[in-house]
Design a protein around this nucleic acid. Structure first.
Length: 152
DNA sequence: GCCAACGTTGGC
DNA sequence: GCCAACGTTGGC
């Protein structure tokens, strides 16, 4: 069992969108960064637990949890010329980008804000604090448990 | 393969 | 809106 963090811009697709999906399962697509892609393609496994993190807003925060619901599969948006995520260099034979299905689990009553994460010694090695721009990233088990306690 | 130019992310 | 960090592109 592994733990991950997925970033989302809440006005585009955030935890409320996920919770509103049929069966509360949504496709996590549009990832267009190789490092983030590699985590999805090579390491995400059904049953893995993820934090949903809202970025690009005034008070960025971990806002809830979800779980990986499917193996990685080619992101359909890369083949759609109408999509912002269309990639003409990708092909169905050699897809470049991958997505997974994610199932909503919980929305934190108390979001854990980035400014607070920064104050706790056990969280100082989080990828979130070290590498600002990575949109999918690993979380350690101690970090997972610590943040869940903060959200209670 | 190097590197300058450029684009994007994302916190503040 | 600004800007730091960093990823990508493309000429050479």
């Amino acid at each position: 069992m592994n733990y991950w963090l997925l970033k989302a811009e809440p006005h585009i697709y955030g935890i409320d969108h996920l919770a509103a999906e049929q069966h509360q399962i949504g496709r996590w697509d549009g990832i267009r960064n190789y490092q983030a892609r590699n985590f999805i393609r090579d390491q995400f496994k059904p049953g893995d637990l993820v934090f949903i993190y809202h970025s690009g807003i005034k008070n960025p925060a971990v806002v809830g949890t979800a779980c990986i619901q499917s193996p990685a599969y080619p992101d359909p948006l890369q083949f759609n010329p109408e999509s912002n995520y269309y990639d003409p260099k990708s092909s169905t034979e050699k897809p470049r980008w991958f997505s997974v299905d994610v199932k909503f689990l919980s929305r934190f009553k108390n979001p854990v804000y980035l400014r607070d994460l920064k104050t706790f010694a056990p969280l100082q090695e989080m990828v979130l604090l070290k590498q600002g721009r990575l949109s999918t990233q690993p979380v350690t088990k101690p970090e997972w448990e610590f943040i869940n306690h903060l959200a209670q």
